[in-house]
Amino acid sequence: MDLTALSREFVTLFVLVDPIGSIPVFLFAVSAVPRKLHRRFALRATLIAGLVLFGFLVLGQLALEAIGLDLGSFQIAGGIVLFLFALTMIFGDTKSDTEIEEAEKHRDHLAGAVFPLAMPSIASPGAMLGIVVLTDNRTQTLPEQAVTAGLLLLVLIVTLICMFAATYIFRLIGHTGISVISRVMGIILATIAVDAVLVGLESLGLFEISPTAIPAS
């Protein structure tokens, strides 16, 4: 896997997990937790989200194949869902606003670090879809999938660091900064989603990505 592919996968995972967008969710989730427990809270949420995402990495495609679904079809469906998710990031409320609003409705039933922090903030539906799309058993060798797992672990570590420093980061960039970053990530995610649909169409033999279609610079 070359540097370009590594960078692409890291950016994809970073956008899908969105460590910056999880900061307001973390601050909301720990608002009733003693300050001395904040780091333990963040660590627990990251571990739970990591287990969910690594579960999809290992078992996602196997589950699809077990019920007779083609990964190409999943890539197309996942790409469409990710595109719609990206549109909400660009034009709608930010991820954190939506998740905090939902959590406010269920404040009496919050399960510690699980909801809304581990899921759906860190291990979002988009991240689960993206993990399966990135680890195609037919085109990705085991070492390449191990690299994807390593990149996911790196993104989760960045997420954990962001939560450890959440108060300082939020004080520095505020809601406005987080909103701007979220919308930029939405644009990147929309591009990734379109690419996933094209790759899915190609894998099903319905579309061919021709290198000659790109004009030489």
Rank of each mutant, 00 (worst) to 15 (best):
Phe85Lys: 08
Leu134Asn: 15
Phe170Arg: 04
Glu101Asp: 15
Ala111Asp: 03
Thr167Ala: 04
His175Tyr: 05
Phe91Glu: 12
Leu64Gly: 08
Ile169Arg: 03
Phe85Ala: 09
Gly78Gln: 11
Ser31Ala: 09
Ile90Ala: 07
Val147Lys: 05
Ile192Asn: 06
His38Ser: 14
Met185Gln: 14
Ala146Thr: 10
Glu9Cys: 01
Ile178His: 03
Val58Cys: 03
Ser182Cys: 05
Arg171Glu: 04
Met128Glu: 03
Val114Ile: 09
Ile131Tyr: 03
Gly126Leu: 07
Glu99Ala: 14
Thr139Ile: 11
Pro19Trp: 01
Leu152Cys: 07
Ala29Cys: 12
Ile192Met: 08
Ala86Phe: 02
Gly200Leu: 00
Ser124Phe: 00
Val158Tyr: 10
Phe28Ile: 02
Pro34Leu: 14
Gln75Phe: 10
Arg107Ser: 10
Glu102Asp: 07
Phe170Thr: 13
Val81Ser: 12
Ser210Arg: 06
Leu3Asp: 07
Ala118Arg: 07
Arg138Cys: 09
Leu37His: 11
Ile169Thr: 06
Glu102Val: 00
Phe115Asn: 09
His175Asp: 06
Ile67Pro: 02
Leu189Ala: 05
Cys162Ala: 14
Val81Arg: 00
Ala111Thr: 10
Leu87Asn: 08
Glu104Pro: 02
Ile188Thr: 06
Thr159Ser: 13
Met185Glu: 08
Pro125Phe: 10
Leu160Trp: 14
Ile161Pro: 02
Thr12Gln: 06
Leu204Asp: 03
Ile161His: 08
Tyr168Trp: 05
Met1Trp: 02
Leu134Lys: 07
Arg107Ala: 06
Gly174Gln: 08
Leu27Thr: 10
Asn137Tyr: 10
Gly112Gln: 09
Leu156Tyr: 03
Leu198Glu: 06
Ala42Tyr: 03
Gly79Ala: 13
Thr148Ile: 14
Ile80Trp: 00
Arg35Asn: 08
Asn137Arg: 12
Leu134Ile: 15
Met128Phe: 00
Pro19Cys: 10
Ile178Ser: 14
Leu16Asp: 03
Thr12Ala: 12
Val194Ala: 13
Phe41Ser: 09
Ala77Ser: 15
Leu13Ile: 14
Glu101His: 13
Leu160Ala: 04
Leu152Ser: 13
Ala111Phe: 00
Leu16Met: 13
Leu37Asp: 04
Pro143Trp: 01
Ser203Lys: 04
Leu172Trp: 11
Leu71Met: 08
Thr135Asn: 12
Leu154Ala: 08
Ser121His: 06
Glu99Phe: 10
Ala193Tyr: 00
Gly205Met: 00
Phe83Pro: 09
Arg35Asp: 10
Ile192Cys: 02
Val158Lys: 04
Asp2Glu: 13
Val184Trp: 01
Thr212Phe: 01
Gly186Glu: 01
Gly186Asp: 02
Ile187Asn: 01
Asn137Phe: 13
